[in-house]
Amino acid sequence: MRLALLLGVPLFWMVGVYGGSLAALLVQSFFRLDSFAGTIDRSPTLATWRDLFTDANMSVAARTIGMASSVTLASIVIALPLAYFIARHASRRTKAVLVLAVMIPLWSSYLVRVYSWKLILSADGIVNWFFERLGIGGLLDAVLALPAIGGPSLSVSYIGQFLVFVYIWLPYMVLPIQAALERVPRSFIEASADLGAHPATTFRKVVWPLAIPGVAAGSIFTFSLTLGDYIIPTVIGDSSPFIGLAIYSYQGVAGNLPLAAAFAFVPIAVMGLYLFGAKRLGAFEAL
C-alpha cells in the first residue's frame, strides 16, 4: 500500500501526464486544419502527415538535424578533454572550481546569454574587433564568405548559430562524460599501461569505451535540446526556421495544431533512431 502511494504519483506523472499528452499529440496529428474556416476537422485523416512531408518542411527538418548533429559532435570534441582533465587530473580544489565553472552558466538566464552572444557576434561586436586588432579581419571575412554557412556577420550566420548552440549546451555534455570517467578506476589505466599499451592505445581501448555511456547521455541532451530549441534560431542567424520554430509558428501563428503535432514527432523519431543506432553499436554495453 505504501509502495503504491510512493510509486503512484511519479507513475501518474510519467504515464498519465507525460504519456497522455504524447498520445493526445499523436491523435491530434491525424486531424486536419480546415484552411477556409480556420477550424480543426476532427475526422481521422492522413492529410496532415502528407503536408508534413513537403519539401519545405523536410528542409526545415534537415537543417535542424544537421545543426543538432554538428553541435553534438563539436560538444563531444570540446567536452571530452575537459571532462577527462576534471575527472582524472585535477586536484580536489581545481575539480570543484572547474565543475562550478561548467555549471555557473546554467544558473543565469538562457535568454540573457543568447542575447549577449548576439552582441558578441555582431558586425561591430568584440569578436570582429578582436580579429581586426590582430590584423586578421580578412580571415573572418573569408570564413563568413563561405556559401551556405556564412553570412554578413557572425550573428546572422549558421556559424554564429552553431557557436551559440555549442556554448549553451556544452555543460550537458561535459557533466555526463565527467561522471562516466569518474567511475573508471585509476587501476584500469595503470593495468593497460602495465600490459604494454601506450597512452593513445589506453585511451582508445579502455578510456573511450568506458566513456561512451557518458557521451551517449550527453549527446542525447545536446542533440534533443538543439532539435527542440526555437530561441537561438530566432535571435541568432538569418531566421530560417528550425523544427522548434516551425512547430511554434504552426500552432501559434497559423493555428494549425495538427501539423504542429505531426512535426513534433520528427525529433522523437530522430531521437528513437539515434538511440537504436547507439545501442546497436554497443554504446551501452559497459553500463
Binding site: 587501476s187 584500469f188 595503470e190 593495468a191 602495465d194 600490459l195 569505451p209 568506458l210
Partner: peptide, 12 residues
C-alpha cells in the same frame, strides 16, 4: 606485469 588488488579487469 602486475596483478592488481582490485584485479582491474576491463568490464567492457
Amino acid at each position: 606485469n602486475t596483478v592488481f588488488q582490485d584485479y582491474a579487469l576491463f568490464p567492457h
